[in-house]
Design a protein around this nucleic acid. Structure first.
Lengths: 230, 230
DNA sequence: CCAAGAAGTTGAACACGTTCAACACTGACT
DNA sequence: AGTCAGTGTTGAACGTGTTCAACTTCTTGG
């Protein structure tokens, strides 16, 4: 999931290794879709991929690391889908909503067992955690998308907030993903409703910064965010 | 952790069972503190509690369920500590900050292995999840505290938001807990800074609702929250 | 073409969480 | 005292993720 890292596994030295990794991930995803994460054993994955258990562990350090392949795949698909939106729209609401809604569309088939993935990603010590050093690259990519969302939009922000806003949007996306994980409504309608409701609110709040009082608060938010980083 | 449920385990029938449960929880907490959650085996817990592995499983359905005892204990302590704050203070900032900071104080000794607890609680299907049906009671208690924070404070809210505000404060507390889990700073100073920065912001934002524009947005937030529930 | 190291492969073995059938104790009612 | 149900106890056994030493195959430089 775009936001949930694409942990850099040790770059495969050979083309064959790369292919084998892809084979294993594909096999795992097939089984995950059928029976869920927990019910899928590493032995079954190895079988499905046509190799021994030990071999699977030669390519992936753990069952958890197997999920990285999934992240990478989804991440790439999302970036492609997003490019389309960002080329066509100029309104902030359309751009940001588009980014979030496309993600929901892409991730939908995996919603059922995303819970287990999320469970692992939620561990701060896990390399899958969105805040982990390992996923810094993916995080920066994702924040970069948000920067682009803002850059190409009609939204004018006070200087104090301009710097921090992409990171805040990323954080909001993380919140949406969190909501999505817990969303048991049909077709994740509730998460979609959240996006459609919250994005215009952000837009209106941002535009309100023309008022001095509001701008003061915005400045304080920026200061707080800055002080909490590092 | 107050916010993270106190899952109602089947009420022990006998006094002896109650005592045995307490013994096991105490033994587990001792070992958790020494070596962390993962490194503590159920066999070791059973040993430390002076019984067989099977017996431990007679009292607790799983290693995860063992953690409930911890939640219950911390939850009770927090409620006591909070009562003191709420009796003394009338300012919203002091009341809400007090509630949050006391929780950080109480939870501090467990911060190191809270990550693992959180990892389990993050699974929406886990009974330990703050959103699970099993923890509804604990959740309502916690929302009730927020209601009390507001009721006894000097903060005036627009009618539209008054109903939803306790739940929003609870949600914010969940966010703080999330931040806390990931906070690796000395003595969780960063989480404390977050509380000290964010609570006054909430206060100022709430007071800004005297402006019609802002009040309109507040109303929309309330509507959105309402539509996402249920 | 050969040797040697790197890359890849394997199944047995380990530790752990969890389950279970069998057994033991307790206490209340006849 | 005897029976019976409820409560408690036990260690063996199972399935799982993970490790590892031994083995095979591939690649590369001479």
């Amino acid at each position: 999931m775009t936001t949930l890292a694409a942990v850099p596994t040790p770059a495969p030295r050979t083309a064959k290794a790369e292919a084998t990794r892809a084979t294993i991930v594909a096999a795992a995803m097939r089984l995950f879709r059928e029976g869920g994460y927990d019910a899928t054993t590493m032995r079954a994955v190895a079988d499905e991929a046509g190799m021994s258990l030990g071999s699977a562990y030669y390519y992936f350090a753990s069952k958890e690391h197997l999920v990285q392949g999934f992240y990478d795949q989804l991440s790439a698909e999302h970036e492609a889908a997003v490019a389309e939106v960002l080329a066509a729209e100029t309104g902030f609401v359309e751009r940001y909503s588009g980014v979030l809604l496309r993600w929901i569309d892409l991730a939908a088939p995996y919603h059922e067992f995303a819970a287990t993935f999320f469970k692992n990603a939620a561990d701060p010590r896990s390399p899958l955690s969105p805040f982990s050093p390992e996923s810094q690259a993916a995080r920066e990519t994702s924040v970069g998308i948000q920067r682009e969302v803002l850059a190409g939009s009609d939204l004018k922000l006070p200087a104090a907030l301009r710097e921090e806003m992409p990171e805040l949007l990323w954080l909001l996306q993380m919140g949406v993903v969190l909501f999505w994980v817990y969303d048991s409504s049909e077709d994740q309608q509730r998460t979609r409703a959240l996006v459609r409701g919250v994005v215009p609110l952000v837009d209106r709040l941002a535009r309100l910064t023309r008022l001095p009082v509001v701008r003061g608060i915005a400045g304080d938010i920026a200061t707080l965010v800055r002080s909490l980083r590092g």
